[in-house]
Write a protein that binds this DNA or RNA. Structure first.
Length: 569
DNA sequence: CTAGGGTTAG
C-alpha cells in the first residue's frame, strides 16, 4: 500500500498531478491512511501545498511530523523549523519524540546550532531526554553544526550506548577536524566490546586519511576484511581515498581492481582523484576515458577530478580540452564554481594569467573569493604585480578578510623589493588583526607522529643538522630563495628565517631518526614553499632518500633530485 | 515502517 503510493507520488511532476492523486485518494476512501505519506512528499519537494493542506484539515501530530520530516529533507531544511514553531501553536498538535527528532534532523541539515540548543531544552521539558535515539540525533545535530564539545558532552553522559551513537560521535569528530580524537574513540569502542560496522569504519578511515597515518589505515582495512565489510561499495571507496591521501596509489588501485562489489561513478571519481593528487595525471585521464567505456557516465565530480589531475601534472592543454568538452554541451555536465576554480589554477600556474583572468570575467555565476585568491597565488609565482593588485582590489571589494591573501600580496611586493608597499600591507594586517595561519608539519617515524611548527627554534640538534644539510646541498648548486621571506631584512637573516620552516625541521628530524633506506613522509597543513621544495629535491639526490611531502592539496614525491610534480604547483 | 549514524570535490 505505502509502496504503491510512493511510486505514484514519484511520478507526480506537477501540482496538478499531485491534486489529481489527492482527489483519487479521497474518493476511493484511501486518504485517511495515506495522508501522512502524501503531505511528506509535498513538503519534501518544496511544495507549499503541504502547508495548504495542513491549514484545511484538523491536523494531528502525524501530519505535522510528516511535513517536518519532508521539509527537513527538502532544499530548504530551515523551513522545517518554522513549521515546527507554527505547529506548536495549535492545540491539536502535541509534539512527540518523533517531532523533535525530525526537527533536529532539520537543524543538522541547516547547520542551525541555536535552534538545536532550543530543541534540546524542549526535549528536556517534554520529558523525552531519556530516549537514546533522540540523544543520538541531538548529538549529530551539535556535531554537524560544529559544536563538538557539546556533542562530546552528550556522548560522555549517555547512560546507555549502542553502535549508532558511537558512529555519530566518531563521524562527527572526523568531519569536524578532530581526527585524532575520532581515532581514539574508535579504538576505545572496540576495547569496551562494541563491534564497529560499515559506518563506523568510514569515520575511522577518514580520520586516518586526514592524519596521513597509513599504518592505522591499514589496520582498519584489515579489520574491514575480517568482518567482510568490503562487500560495501562505500567502504571500498573510502579505503581507496585513505590510501590515496596517505600517498599509496598502488594500494588504492589494488582495492579498486579487486572489489567484490559493484563499482559506481563515485568509485571511479575517487580513483581518478587519488591518481591526480599523487601526480599520475596520464593514468587519471586514462581511467576517466575508461569509465565511459564501462558504462559509467562521468558526472561533475568526474570532470572535476580529471581537471584536478591535469592541474597537478601540469597538463595544461589536456585540461583546456577537457574543459571544452565539458562545456560544449555534449557532456550535459554544467560546470560549477569549482570547475572554474581549477581552470583558473591550471592556467595561472602555467603563467597564462590573462586567460585565467578572462575565465573569471566570463563565468555565468558570481565569482567567489577563492577564484581571486587563486589568481593572486599565480601572480606571486610569476611576479605579476599589476595583476596581483587587480585581484587584491577585487578581494577588498568583496570584503574578504582572509589572512592568506594579504600575506601573498606582501610576498609579491617583497619579491620585487617594494618595501614601502610591503609596509602598507603589513599595516593593514595589523589593523585588521590578521594573523598568519601557523604552518606545521607532521612526520611519521616508526609509527609515531612528530609535529613541528614554523619558526620553532627550540630544537638545537635539528638546527645543527639543517646547517649541515644546507652546506652539502649548496655544493650542488642550492641558492636560498629568499623571495619567500616577508620582511626587509638582510640576506643572511632571510636565509636563517627560511631554515625554520616546519617541513625543513621535519626533514632534519627524519634524516636523523630513520635509516638510509626509509622513505621520509611529511604532512604539511599549508602548501609547501618554493624554497623548501628546492631543498627537498636536492636532499633526495645528495642523501639518496625518497621523500614524500603531502601538502594542503597534493603530493610531492622527491627522488634523485626531481619532484613528481615536475615543479608545476 | 514515522526515529538515530555513512562515500568522491578548487
Amino acid at each position: 500500500m505505502g509502496v504503491a503510493i510512493q511510486q505514484l507520488l514519484r511520478r507526480c511532476g506537477t501540482l496538478s498531478h499531485i491534486k489529481q492523486l489527492q482527489a483519487h485518494l479521497i474518493t476511493t476512501g484511501l486518504y485517511p491512511c495515506t495522508r501522512s505519506v502524501f503531505v511528506e512528499f509535498c513538503a519534501a519537494t518544496s511544495s507549499c501545498y503541504a502547508a495548504h493542506i495542513f491549514r484545511h484539515i484538523p491536523p494531528i501530530t502525524n501530519d505535522w511530523n510528516a511535513i517536518i520530516r519532508g521539509l527537513a529533507q527538502s532544499l530548504q531544511p530551515a523551513d522545517a523549523l518554522t513549521f515546527y514553531r507554527q505547529g506548536l501553536r495549535l492545540l491539536s498538535c502535541k509534539p512527540d519524540a518523533l517531532t523533535c527528532s525530525f526537527t533536529l534532523k532539520a537543524c543538522a541539515r541547516a547547520l542551525a546550532s541555536n535552534e538545536a540548543f532550543q530543541i534540546h531544552s524542549q526535549v528536556v521539558r517534554y520529558g523525552f531526554i531519556a530516549d537514546v535515539l533522540l540523544q543520538t540525533t541531538l548529538l549529530d545535530a551539535y556535531a554537524k553544526a560544529g559544536y563538538l564539545e557539546d556533542a562530546r558532552k552528550l556522548f560522555d553522559e549517555m547512560p546507555v550506548r549502542d553502535v549508532t551513537c558511537w558512529n555519530a560521535i566518531i563521524a562527527g569528530l572526523a568531519q569536524g577536524n578532530r581526527p585524532d580524537e575520532a581515532l581514539q574513540l574508535f579504538k576505545r569502542m572496540k576495547d569496551v566490546g562494541f563491534t564497529p560496522n560499515e559506518i563506523t569504519v568510514l569515520g575511522a578511515l577518514s580520520a586516518c586519511a586526514q592524519l596521513g597515518m597509513v599504518r592505522e589505515g591499514q589496520n582498519v582495512y584489515n579489520y574491514i576484511k575480517t568482518q567482510n565489510l568490503d562487500t560495501n561499495e562505500q567502504v571500498c571507496n573510502v579505503v581507496m581515498d585513505m590510501f590515496g591521501k596517505c600517498g599509496h596509489v598502488a594500494k588504492a588501485y589494488q582495492v579498486f581492481n579487486s572489489m567484490r562489489c559493484d563499482k559506481t561513478v563515485v568509485t571511479f571519481n575517487t580513483m581518478i582523484m587519488v591518481l591526480g593528487t599523487n601526480g599520475e595525471g596520464i593514468e587519471a585521464l586514462k581511467l576517466f576515458n575508461q569509465m565511459s567505456k564501462e558504462g559509467f557516465r562521468p558526472d561533475h565530480v568526474s570532470y572535476l577530478s580529471a581537471l584536478c589531475a591535469c592541474n597537478h601534472s601540469g597538463m595544461v592543454d589536456e585540461g583546456v580540452q577537457l574543459f571544452e568538452t565539458m562545456t560544449s554541451g555534449s557532456s550535459s555536465v554544467v560546470p560549477t564554481i569549482k570547475h572554474y576554480g581549477t581552470m583558473v589554477d591550471l592556467l595561472g600556474r602555467s603563467g597564462r594569467l590573462n586567460e585565467a583572468y578572462s575565465i573569471i570575467s566570463s563565468i555565468p555565476i558570481a565569482p567567489d573569493v577563492v577564484l581571486w585568491q587563486t589568481l593572486l597565488g599565480a601572480c606571486k609565482t610569476y611576479g605579476d604585480v599589476e595583476m596581483a593588485e587587480k585581484a587584491s582590489r577585487k578581494l577588498v571589494e568583496m570584503g574578504s578578510h582572509s589572512d592568506g591573501e594579504l600575506v601573498l600580496l606582501s610576498n609579491i611586493y617583497a619579491a620585487r623589493h617594494r618595501w614601502k608597499d610591503v609596509g602598507e600591507v603589513r599595516e593593514t594586517m595589523r589593523n585588521k588583526q590578521v594573523k598568519k595561519v601557523p604552518g606545521f608539519s607532521y612526520i611519521d617515524v616508526k609509527g609515531v607522529i612528530h609535529k613541528f611548527v614554523n619558526g620553532d627554534k627550540s630544537h638545537s640538534n635539528l638546527q645543527k643538522k639543517l646547517e649541515e644539510i644546507m652546506c652539502r646541498i649548496m655544493e650542488h648548486g642550492y641558492v636560498p630563495e629568499t623571495g619567500y621571506v616577508l620582511h626587509d631584512i638582510g640576506q643572511e637573516e632571510k636565509e636563517h628565517a627560511l631554515s625554520y620552516h616546519s617541513e625543513k625541521l621535519a626533514l632534519a628530524f627524519g634524516l636523523i631518526e630513520t635509516s638510509d633506506d626509509e622513505t621520509l613522509r611529511v604532512n604539511k597543513n599549508l602548501r609547501i614553499c618554493g624554497d623548501c621544495h628546492e631543498v627537498m629535491k636536492l636532499v633526495s639526490k645528495v642523501y639518496e632518500r625518497e621523500i614524500v611531502v603531502r601538502d594542503r592539496t597534493r603530493f610531492h614525491r622527491f627522488e634523485k633530485g626531481l619532484c613528481s610534480c615536475k615543479d608545476f604547483w
